[in-house]
Amino acid sequence: MEQTPLVEVSGLRKFFPIRKGLLRRTVGNVRAVDGVSFSINAGETLGLVGESGCGKSTVGRTVLRLIEPSAGSIKINGNDITAVGKQDLRALRRQMQIVFQDPFSSLNPRIKAGEIVGEPLKVHGVGDRGEREAKVADLFRLVGLRPAQMNNYPHQFSGGQRQRVSIARALALDPGFIVADEPVSALDVSIQAQVINLLMDLQRDRKLSYLFISHNLAVVEHISHRVAVMYLGRIVEYADKTALFAKPLHPYTEALLAAVPLPDPALKRTKHRVEGDVPSPINPPSGCHFHPRCPYAEARCRVEAPVLRDVGVGRQVACHLR
């Protein structure tokens, strides 16, 4: 496993200012992402899980500089994309792409599917018109669509097919790294499987790296190699998939896993619930952000924020007690 990671993110922060009044003065910050670090090797999937408002989608967008990070560095193939200007960034975008959750709003309704997929090629001046069209047809076949469907508008596709169009667009420039932001959450169960299989096949054939963002633990377990669990802007646990799901260390991971309903009525679950709601990231709890909901919390947890520290090979947890 000694290789340089394709993607290296360190100390990533994104604060959204809260502005008020006529002069739009900043009165506070939403600490959406508060010091997140991870790396992804070529051909590897890092699953990023957490509940709504934990900042996982912001991480996905910030990593691609679709949103400017407040601090931190993001290296892709060794290039720090936070340090380059707009022109250079545009060139670097060939190496990284994104697939979104909502198959309806992620495609411009006024543009034909073939043009949507061919757009990145046009932007980067790849080939002439004929070559681009041939390449788009290939991409359509690659994601399991018929080239004849290139002339259709997005509304003429089903949800699953639209997601395939999105994936084809992301693959057009042969990127090494794809951020998949909840790519199957809006799809029906039977269609989810098709898209997950497609993503995994593509990874195998093209050695793609994924940052797979999802709230669905089962899907993350299935597709990821390693998993990072986020809570209120911070990673609380970061581990190999098998290790994490076999024995979660952070109380929050434990609670998440316990809460997932299992499709097997024979398993009688122990009731093991966390109480309360996810607090607001505008004014997160002191110390460990999870302490108000944590069944094990001690005095120390209320005042001192735990740092993410190594606990065994490739495994990190941010908890005073584990």
Binding site: G160, S190, A193, I196, N197, H222, T242, A246, L262, P263
Partner: peptide, 25 residues
Amino acid sequence: SIPRVGSARGLDVSPDERLREITGM
């Protein structure tokens, strides 16, 4: 077709198994 949170509970889930698809829509 549904992936399961399984290994944590010692269920038989091999990690790289393809999900069974229902083709079409």
